[in-house]
């Protein structure tokens, strides 16, 4: 029986593993957490000027293949990431690995389920496919809701690490959920517990919006854990991009944005969304915006000048980061620290 593995992205490994183990008969191999070794493997076999998500996912794939996986899952995106699966497949085959690669999303369209089972050696369990698919969808939505709450409240926690501990507990419970109702109960319990976490009183709230390229935003290892860092400075963080947004809301929202906004064209990937979010953050009177992308991310590079001038009209400062394997942590910290000092001074 073939063994399946998938790339690593934040905590979304939990729902993916849940779905695959409940729906398929195949053995599922959990990918390793991203470490320095993953990055080194990824950069070693990647073209130099390719964007970092390619390198991270390639590194994870190599590690999974070494653990014995022979079916890999990849998801294309709306930018040149859409072609990455083919390049990655070629690179890995040249390295002498034998495997099949499934690309779930091609040019923004999902692969058809019938085709999936016809073409690839994966076997479905007899019962419960729709139930577990629904549970997984709900799990992603609940996780994102909880994360949304954490991002704006973790900065005020009295006991350091209280939210992170609860979150980890919740993910563990969720991965053992029996069905949608059980999952809903877990979600409700933990939301309640999180709302009961003792918080510091504060008079001045400083809020920062995070926008940018999706992989670098969602994988904490790729962005030097910027959300926790900002929270530790006492800043609330808002992030639009998460899997809920990308899979279930983006299509509808983009149509709205095209209608109401001064941009008439899509610019690929999330460029249009980010420009619109900049405007939304400014109108909500956020104190600052941080834009993160991986190096050489073309759609975001195109969006950056527009983001900057939009924010300038509202007088909101924007900080741009380009993350790479070679980003120096010290330089990153100095910039972030100065940005936070600036926001605090402006608030006074």
């Amino acid at each position: 029986m073939n063994k399946i593995s998938y790339p690593q992205l934040g905590s979304y490994g939990v729902p993916i593993y849940y779905l695959l183990t409940h729906v398929l008969r195949n053995e599922i191999i959990k990918p390793k957490e991203i470490t320095k070794k993953t990055m080194e493997l990824g950069s070693k076999y990647s073209p130099d000027f390719v964007c970092t998500p390619f390198k991270y996912t390639l590194g994870t794939m190599i590690e999974s293949l070494d653990m014995g996986a022979d079916i890999l899952i990849q998801m294309g995106g709306g930018c040149r990431y859409g072609y990455y699966h083919e390049l990655q497949e070629q690179i890995l085959k040249d390295l002498g690995y034998h495997f099949q690669l499934i690309n779930l999303i091609n040019g923004g369209n999902h692969i058809s389920i019938r085709k999936l089972f016809k073409e690839y050696p994966i076997e479905l369990k007899k019962r419960g496919f729709l139930k577990y698919l629904y549970t997984t969808k709900k799990m992603v939505i609940y996780m994102d809701k909880i994360d949304h709450y954490i991002r704006s409240h973790r900065c005020y926690e009295k006991e350091k690490g209280a939210f992170n501990k609860l979150r980890e507990e919740m993910l563990l419970k969720m991965s053992e959920a029996k069905g949608p109702i059980h999952l809903y109960h877990i979600y409700k319990t933990y939301l309640k517990r999180m709302k009961n976490v003792p918080l510091r009183e504060t008079t001045k709230r400083i809020r920062v919006g995070l926008i940018g390229e999706l992989y670098t935003l969602m994988e904490p290892k790729a962005n030097e854990e910027i959300e926790e860092l900002l929270n530790s400075y006492g800043f609330e963080v808002k992030r639009y991009t998460d899997v809920t947004y990308l899979l279930f809301q983006k299509k509808r929202k983009v149509k709205q944005y095209l209608k109401n906004f001064f941009i008439k064209y899509r610019m690929g990937a999330d460029a249009l969304d980010n420009i619109h979010h900049t405007k939304e953050l400014c109108e909500d009177e956020y104190d600052g915006i941080i834009h993160i992308k991986s190096s050489f991310c073309t759609p975001e590079i195109a969006a950056m000048p527009i983001i900057e001038s939009t924010a300038q009209q509202y007088g909101v400062p924007v900080l741009f980061f380009s993350m790479d394997m070679n980003t120096s942590e010290t330089g990153f910290l100095t910039r972030i620290e100065a940005f936070c000092d600036m926001l605090e001074m402006r608030k006074q």
Binding site: S322, G331, T334, R335, A338, F339, D341, M342, R346, Q348
Partner: peptide, 10 residues
Amino acid sequence: RMIHDYAMNT
């Protein structure tokens, strides 16, 4: 009289 914006060589 406060920092409004800054940039640093990257």
